[in-house]
Design a binder for these strands. Structure first.
Length: 462
DNA sequence: GAACTTTGACCCCTT
DNA sequence: AAAGGGGTCAAAGTT
């Protein structure tokens, strides 16, 4: 990878602000609405919490970067985000990492995914994004954002098998809440798995100066493992950024395979080939992507994820893949850090931690992974109306310097959307938004679009 | 009582 | 050299 030291690395870190929403609804209402209402319900997005960058933090990283930090800026930058036409070069010090604008998973998508009966859509998308960005980075920084709460997403993407067992809509909300706990990524030892399948222990928490973010510090619980990660979350618990540091000196915790009566796998993907999972292909994907984004020296993974977009693992994921409804184009409610995201959901679920832990122990897959899986319900990128509910017109395309990803810039009103995708994998893509819509979103009635909406914009609408 | 999180304080690095 | 902020520690609190 080519290194351009003349350039500087700049991380633009917007500070989120909440758009006002005249029609607030309770979580249960949202859930109910997501489950029962039609896909075209534009209000869903409105109801979903959203974070929109209000200001930006420009943080020169060159000096502070640990060894190897951002050394593969190419992947990082390109994979994460863009600033207009600035080409983000590898190790470039001039790279600009934009924190993607908050996005909302449209009701349409939720409905669709529900129809598909899987919870992997978002997860796959996340994986795709990660994969797209997961070049051999020494430093990784993923930026995913979503406006869905763990419950929001999870509720709507609950596993098919789970739904099949539940016939009473009125109970779905509460039961799904419970499912959240059941789907916590914990290993058999009770240690908490993150989406990355490592175990983390929180050792610190701080309010990020000059922003609304709260930063949590985690250490890998594996003995002598030097890996740490810090997770930034907005006040409402949404994960804004995850940064990994260090290299694991051990393999990922071995998953415990369990089968429950409901046919819920709750299985962790093995470190190897993934053959011991219900979905080998998926497993491979996960491993590849996860491996590609983690465990590298001084990796900095700022994953734009939705701490709230948690989903339970659905062994039926394979089914989802079959549907492959479309090409993901954005980061829907991702849970790069399942641990973080799930926590919020758990707290909201108001369930005793002891119980949570118990449930957690029964699970092997991280919600983040699942969530990413679920992100695949997307429309084609070149569609005039993309999943974010807005019209987009492709006005350019270029090969990102330093990597093979073509980059498209869609222009609409004041908003630009950059979509980066791997040439060899149409599912691997990174979407970055710039600017703010100055108009209402077109109303769609079609199912099949995806959750690629910009939260604030959507929320401002009635 | 164990395990984990929270939180204030401290240390160190950067500016 | 001083101030400010980030990262870490460790006691207290929570489940």
């Amino acid at each position: 990878m080519e290194v351009n030291k003349a350039e500087r690395i700049v991380i633009v870190k917007p500070v989120p602000s909440r758009p006002t929403c005249s029609s607030f609804r309770s979580v249960s209402e949202l859930l109910a609405g997501a489950i029962n209402s039609s896909p075209s319900n534009a209000c869903f997005a409105t109801a979903v919490s959203a974070i929109r960058p209000k200001t930006v933090r420009v943080k020169p990283m060159a000096n502070r970067s640990p060894v190897g930090m951002l050394s593969s800026q190419t992947e990082v930058s390109s994979a994460v985000s863009y600033s207009s036409d600035k080409v983000l070069n590898s190790d470039s010090k001039a790279n600009v990492l934009y924190r993607p604008l908050a996005k909302v998973v449209s009701k349409t998508t939720l409905s669709l995914s529900e129809n598909l009966g899987n919870s992997n859509i978002c997860h796959q998308q996340a994986l795709a994004q990660v994969e797209a960005s997961a070049q051999p980075p020494s430093q990784f920084k993923y930026h995913f954002r979503s406006d869905l709460s763990p419950n929001d997403l999870h509720q709507n993407f609950s596993p098919l098998s789970e739904r099949e067992k539940k016939n009473e809509p009125s109970k779905m909300a509460s039961e799904n809440m419970e499912d959240d706990q059941k789907c916590l990524p914990f290993n058999h030892n009770g240690d908490r798995y993150s989406y990355d399948r490592y175990n983390w222990r929180k050792y610190g928490k701080k309010q990020v100066k000059g922003s609304d973010y709260v930063r949590s510090y985690y250490k890998c619980t594996h003995p002598n493992c030097p890996v740490k990660k810090k997770v930034e979350r907005s006040l409402d618990g949404q994960i804004a950024e995850i940064v990994y540091k260090g290299e694991h000196n051990h393999s990922k915790p071995q998953p415990v395979r369990r089968n429950t009566s409901g046919g819920q796998g709750n299985i962790f993907i093995s470190d190897g080939t993934g053959q011991d999972t219900n979905n080998p292909s998926l497993s491979n994907q996960l491993n590849e992507r996860i491996d590609g984004s983690e465990g590298r020296t001084e990796n900095q993974i700022a994953v734009g994820l939705s701490g709230k977009g948690l989903l339970s693992y659905d062994p039926v994921a394979a089914r989802v893949s079959k549907f492959n409804v479309g090409i993901p184009e954005n980061s829907c409610g991702l849970s790069g850090d399942y641990e973080e995201g799930s926590k919020k959901g758990l707290e909201e679920a108001d369930e005793p931690r002891s119980k949570r832990r118990k449930n957690e122990n029964e699970l092997g897959i991280s919600g983040g992974e699942v969530q990413a899986q679920g992100a695949l319900v997307q429309s084609n990128i070149d569609s005039e109306i993309i999943g974010d509910g807005c019209h987009w017109k492709k006005y350019g395309q270029k090969i990102v310097k330093g990597n093979p990803y073509p980059r498209c810039s869609n222009l609409n009103c004041n908003v630009r959307k950059h979509v980066e995708r791997a040439s060899d994998d149409p599912k691997a893509f990174i979407t970055t938004y710039e600017g703010k819509h100055n108009h209402d979103m077109p109303i769609r009635n079609t199912v099949g679009s995806e959750p690629d909406s910009q939260a604030a914009t959507s929320k401002d609408k009635p």
